[in-house]
Design a binder for these strands. Sequence first.
RNA 1: GGACAGGUGGGUGAGUUGGCUGAAACCACAUCCCUGCUAAGGAUGCGUACUGGUAACGGUACCGAGGGUUCGAAUCCCUCCCUGUCCGCCA
Length: 412
Amino acid sequence: MLDIKLIQNDFENVCKKLRKKNVNEDIIESLKEISLKLKSKRAELEPLQAEQNASSKLFGVWAREGKDISELKARLSQNKEKIATLSKDVKELEERLSNLALTIPNLPDDIVPQGKDENDNIEIKKVLTPPTFDFKPKEHWEISENWIDFQRGVKLSKSRFSVLKNEAAKLERALINYMLDFNTKRGFKEVAVPYIVNRETLTGTGQLPKFEDDLFKIEGEELFLIPTAEVPVTNLFRDEIISEDELPIKMTSYTACFRKEAGSAGRDTRGMIRQHQFDKVELVCITKPEDSDRIFNEMVKCASDLLSSLGLAHRHLMLCGGDLGFGAAKTVDLEAWFPGQDRYREISSISNTRDFQARRAKIRYKDGKKNRLVHTLNGSSLAVGRTLISIMENYQKADGSIEIPKVLKSYM
RNA sequence: GGACAGGUGGGUGAGUUGGCUGAAACCACAUCCCUGCUAAGGAUGCGUACUGGUAACGGUACCGAGGGUUCGAAUCCCUCCCUGUCCGCCA
């Protein structure tokens, strides 16, 4: 959620920044309007309430002393009606304000490049060189007979579900453990969290109210399957005031993730790139505002080093405004090289949401005497399924076998 | 899922014939004083959000959530949520 005061005081600047994210500024205009209207209504209401409170106290005193209270009572009853009308207005405005505010995305940082979509993202750097093959490398689904069973995944569930077998199942497990250990060594504390969460939790991180269609909802309950560990892990501190010396809080968590992939019809229908259920090891950090850029770089480096340690060539991309997610102020994507597809594909995404989620989720810390919003950051380190198939494509041999990266051998 | 008991500030916990309680007391915490050494004592401060004011200092709202009764509710009524205990069920 954006800071309403910022919208009131620096309207032009907010609009300018949101334009970069392709947001219609009419919405901001009406947000500003409602907030101002609300403020003036409140200014009308509160003195009346003050009077009512004072007179009601008097009422009690007079009644005890046996004074005549009929006139006072009449006045209070009248005032009561005015208050009722006004509070109804205030309440309505509050609701409209929060409904609107909850649907407006975060402001992008100034360094975020202008751009419409993924084609305008900026490559920052490449790490490692893609391997060369003396045969034509296959795509992962062509070398996966004994590893991934797509048909039976569909039989059990529906399209975009798959089953891992034999070495693949084992490799998946090895990757999860390896990634968690890797992240833990860098100071991220491991947490294991629920995969099913409520509406407040999803609102805190920004998935709701706007993106309900992307989520699997539990029938008959106000509960949803998590689309990423970012949701439960960040919300661990929802409605809490953290003491300053606990920051930064650096966490890593393995979870399964569930996404409807609404709107991606026809994209990546083949293979395991885009599934409704996938495993991911996530990094989440809660920091003081002044530390969040530093921690952001740490997270990017952690994920990038993790890829390097697996011998996977990859590149860093700075996402442009148009490709930036709803809550992100800045995002760096890591794309791993997929020889079979002959291209880089996203395998990690690290975002700084600054105080956007913190304001929604009311995550604050005590800065001396004052409570201030924290910054929250999240990033994959890494998407396990995509890492698995990246390994398959990068480590394939002419005879169709697949080598296991050195660092994983002790995990198999 | 059924029965009963509860949900108050960072913690413990008063407050249940509605008004003087936004909330006692204790603990924790912060600053200061005394003392002087791995102690004790004393003073003051210490919820959150919005809002007025340069500030001092005020106002409003919040005692699980939402509604209701009333001039006035933490205190009464309704709905929901959660926790504990017992029972049932289950990896």
